[in-house]
Design a protein around this nucleic acid. Structure first.
Length: 341
DNA sequence: ACCGATGATTATTG
DNA sequence: CAATAATCATCGGT
């Protein structure tokens, strides 16, 4: 407390008296409504002049305080989020997300719809946020302006207050943008990974593929043209055909015994669908090596043959089954083994 | 709810 | 680059 030697009640006032009075007020709690003193001050003839001086002083001190402290750190995190949202098509203009999903089919519309949903929610929230922020800022501003009537409040000070508010609000903004980014990332990963939402091929499509596979067991590697043809027939993409054959080969190899049944099935199917097979040796010539007759038939891989009777050694390299040369080699030695046994 | 089948992706290899 | 092998995530039947 400043020692107040003045008697505050009555008597002619000097400038110094008045200053003392003001100081003593500001030292007191601002909340206590000392309306008497305020009243007395606002009625004083010197009031406006004094007020001006105080405002000037305040402005100067406030300036010196402010320069060192903050001045918009331009929140790098917020900028990062903004950039990402624009890149992701949530913020900027409505762009037609390319999303080059390879084989995953064309349910891009679904993705677009979900993204649009996020967009609208985001913009709504952002709008609400901006409204609330503006409203609050305006409220504080008018409050301060109102207070400026009774105590010196410089415009710079108001601006400082506003910037503080805006900083607080930007925290909320960051949270909003962050959660939006998160939602987009989840959505993106869901749709980018085509393993999700996988659809099995149609019965007819697998039929066609299986027919080809078991008709070319000796060399189940369709050429690019063959793949295109199969893709056309099955109404799938070429890369899906490639995937299918890759999976089929490896899975067939993994369990020849089980696949044998399937092979028989498709062989029978094929036999039934072809004319003039009457006296043919079962299984053979029209199946294997049907690719331009370059490949001789390999009985070991054909239906009707029981591989377990072949005396296959445990370490049978099944890749040989797909390679004519290796297969021929293997058969040679295998036959030798059989004969010697 | 579980489990095998299955289409797709990833990592590795030649 | 294409094939293989391993793995993932979903589907479809029980």
């Amino acid at each position: 407390m400043v020692g107040n030697s003045m008697d505050s009640s009555g008597g002619p006032r000097t400038f110094a008296d008045l200053l003392n009075e003001v100081v003593s007020i500001s030292e007191q709690s601002l909340d206590d409504n000392d309306s008497q003193k305020k009243q007395a001050l606002s009625c004083h003839p010197m009031k406006s002049a004094l007020f001006e001086v105080l405002c000037e002083i305040k402005e100067k001190t406030a300036l010196s305080i402010r320069t060192g402290s903050d001045e918009t750190p331009e929140d790098p995190q917020l900028m990062r989020l903004d950039n990402m949202l624009i890149a992701e098509g949530v913020a900027g203009p409505d762009k037609a997300t390319p999303l080059a999903g390879d084989a995953s089919g064309g349910d891009q519309a679904d993705y677009r719809a979900k993204l649009q949903q996020i967009r609208t929610v985001y913009s709504q929230e952002l709008q609400k946020y901006e409204e609330a922020c503006g409203e609050f800022t305006q409220h504080v501003r008018s409050l301060l302006i109102d207070q400026a009537k009774t105590r010196p409040v410089a415009s710079k000070e108001i601006e400082r207050m506003v910037s503080i508010i805006q900083k607080k609000f930007s925290g909320i903004q960051v949270a909003l943008k962050q959660s939006t980014c998160e939602a987009v990332m989840i959505l993106r990963s869901r749709f980018l990974d085509a393993r999700r939402k996988r659809r099995n091929f149609s019965k007819q499509a697998t039929e066609v593929l299986n027919e080809y596979f078991y008709s070319h067991l000796a060399n189940p590697y369709p050429s690019e043209e063959a793949k295109e043809e199969l893709a056309r027939q099955c109404n799938i993409t070429v890369s899906q055909v490639s995937n299918w054959f890759g999976n089929k080969r490896i899975r067939y190899k993994k369990n020849i015994a089980k696949a044998q049944e399937e092979a028989n099935m498709y062989a029978a199917k094929k036999a039934a669908s072809v004319h003039g097979l009457g006296g043919m040796a079962p299984g053979y010539s029209m199946l294997a090596g049907s690719s331009a007759g370059l490949m001789p038939p390999y009985p070991a891989m054909l239906p009707g043959q029981d591989l377990s009777h072949m005396g296959l050694p445990g370490g049978f390299d099944l890749t040989a089954a797909y390679n004519p040369q290796l297969m021929a080699q293997y058969q040679q030695s295998s036959m030798d083994n059989n004969e010697s046994n």
